[in-house]
Every structure is written in structure tokens, then in C-alpha cells.
Amino acid sequence: MKAELTAIIETAKEGGYWAICPEIPGANGQGETIEEAKESLKMAIQLILEDRLADIRTGATRRRY
């Protein structure tokens, strides 16, 4: 299954770039180049989704605020 998500990439004041995905709370990345920031964000999204899937499989619940 494939999905399209939004990546917002901005220049960091201290140098490099930061990236966020507004559709997935907590998904963010950073890097010295735009490509590094994208890859870091992709990894963060993957880890978050894997964690949520594991919760579903084990029946764990999380509080949403």
C-alpha cells in the first residue's frame, strides 16, 4: 500500500534543514541537505507507523490528547 504524505522542509537557523509531516504527529527529521532531511523524515514516519501497528497487534491503547 502506498500513500502520499506532505513534507514541509525549511532551512534551520543553525544550518541545515528540518522537515515535518503534518499528517503524522511527531514525525520530523533533519539533515545537512534537503535530501538528508527527507530521508530522516521518511525514517521517522516508518518508525512511528511500525510502532502504531505493533500497538494494534498487541491490543495496546494509547491516550490521545
Rank of each mutant, 00 (worst) to 15 (best):
L49C: 12
L47T: 04
R63M: 07
L49E: 13
E36Y: 09
E32W: 05
I8W: 04
R57S: 04
R62K: 08
A54H: 06
Q46T: 06
K13V: 12
C21E: 07
A12C: 11
E23D: 15
R52M: 15
C21K: 05
E4F: 07
A12G: 03
E50V: 05
C21G: 08
A54S: 14
A37W: 06
A7Q: 10
I34W: 01
E14G: 02
E35A: 08
A19I: 04
R63N: 09
T6F: 08
G26S: 01
G16L: 03
R62F: 02
E50H: 04
A44F: 09
K13W: 01
P22Y: 07
N28E: 10
I9G: 00
K38C: 08
E35W: 05
R63Q: 10
K2Y: 03
A27N: 11
Y17W: 13
G59Y: 04
M1G: 14
A44G: 14
T6P: 11
I24E: 07
S40W: 02
A7R: 10
M1F: 02
G16V: 01
I20Q: 10
T58E: 13
D55F: 00
A19D: 03
I48K: 01
K42Y: 13
I56E: 14
A12I: 00
L49A: 11
A19T: 03
L53D: 03
E23V: 11
T11Y: 00
T58V: 00
E50S: 12
Q46K: 14
I9H: 03
A7S: 11
E10G: 02
E39I: 09
R64N: 08
E4T: 12
E35L: 05
E36R: 11
E14Y: 05
A44I: 05
T58A: 08
R52L: 15
T33C: 07
I56T: 02
G29K: 07
I45D: 00
Y17L: 07
E32A: 13
E4C: 00
A27H: 11
R63L: 12
Q30Y: 10
P22L: 09
K13T: 11
Y17N: 04
E32N: 12
I45G: 00
D51L: 06
A12Q: 08
Q30G: 15
E39D: 14
A7G: 09
E36I: 07
K38S: 02
G59L: 10
I20T: 15
L53M: 08
M1P: 06
I45W: 00
A44S: 15
T33K: 06
E36G: 01
R64G: 06
I8F: 03
W18V: 14
K38Y: 12
P25N: 03
I20C: 12
A60P: 00
R62Q: 09
